[in-house]
């Protein structure tokens, strides 16, 4: 469903050229949930944005549902791939009601029957009629993220991209959103590509996981391997250790912080 071959993204030119992602190749089968994990600056979000088509100058091949993606995406391909952003405060237009936000994609793709579609989408993400005409500032963080998910789903995409969808949320709300995503994936047969810095979150939702650091895909592993600790790359091992909570004995206090 998603195939990346040697995808590279660079910013700047000449001596100031920075490779945000270099030669990333991976393959996600239909209905699968694939996770990319790494720290900030690892390039995981860059890869996701390249798949989304938000980075026009990405090099390499990106094939989605058998179609090779070019520089410009048609409206039909846009409909196939949707994304949920990290910040539920920044990803909804502050001056539009939930109704307006959800109606826009319906209008763009001339799907018709906007009223029913919006109502269905809201019901599907667990929001009631009372939320329909509220502004984002009248909603909690979790409710906003539900609206963002509804906005992505209303186009009935085949691929859902998730950029740290729960990292701005409280623990209890995170569980609700993760459960919602699990259910939607099952009900709609969605293929998911998720990015997160949280190993536990990514291993909860995804079967296969890629570990990224400094723009490179270091290791392809599985949630089971992470759980049992049978990972090979030293960086993955280090991430796994850090995830187990604070342990003064394992911290290299003098190590230079990564830029």
């Amino acid at each position: 469903m998603i195939t990346l071959e040697n995808v590279s993204v660079a910013y700047g030119t000449g001596a100031r050229r920075v490779l945000a992602a270099s030669d990333v190749s991976l393959h996600v089968t239909p209905g699968e949930a694939f996770g990319l994990v790494g720290e900030s600056g690892s390039g995981k979000s860059t890869v996701l944005r390249a798949v989304a088509g938000l980075i026009a100058h990405a090099e390499g091949r990106i094939v989605l549902a058998g179609q090779e993606m070019g520089r410009r995406r048609s409206t039909a391909t846009r409909k196939m791939v949707q994304m949920v952003f990290q910040d539920p405060y920044g990803s909804l237009h502050p001056n539009q009601t939930v109704d307006q936000i959800l109606s826009m994609p319906v209008a763009i793709h001339r799907l018709g029957d906007a009223d029913r579609r919006v109502a269905t989408a809201l019901r599907e993400v667990g929001l009631g009629r009372e939320h329909r005409f509220r502004y984002p500032h009248q909603l909690s963080g979790g409710q906003r993220q539900r609206v963002a998910i509804a906005r992505a789903l209303i186009l009935q995409p085949r691929i859902l991209l998730l950029d740290e969808p729960t990292s701005a949320l409280d623990v209890s709300v995170q569980a609700e959103i993760l459960n919602l995503l699990t259910r939607l994936r099952r009900d709609h047969g969605l293929t998911m590509l998720m990015v997160s810095h949280d190993l536990a979150v990514i291993a909860h939702l995804c079967e296969r996981i890629g570990v990224m650091s400094r723009g490179e895909l270091l290791e392809l592993t599985t949630a089971d391997a992470l759980a049992s600790g049978t990972v090979t790359h030293p960086y993955t091992k280090q991430l796994l250790r850090s995830n187990q909570g604070f342990d003064p004995s394992s911290v290299d206090i003098d190590a230079t912080p990564a830029a």
């Binding site: 938000l54 846009r78 791939v81 952003f85 920044g90 990803s91 826009m104 793709h109 906005r151």
Partner: peptide, 13 residues
């Protein structure tokens, strides 16, 4: 560069 603009772009606006 706001995310809601990117979201609109992704929707094909």
């Amino acid at each position: 560069r706001a995310e809601f603009i990117e979201a609109a772009e992704l929707q094909g606006a």
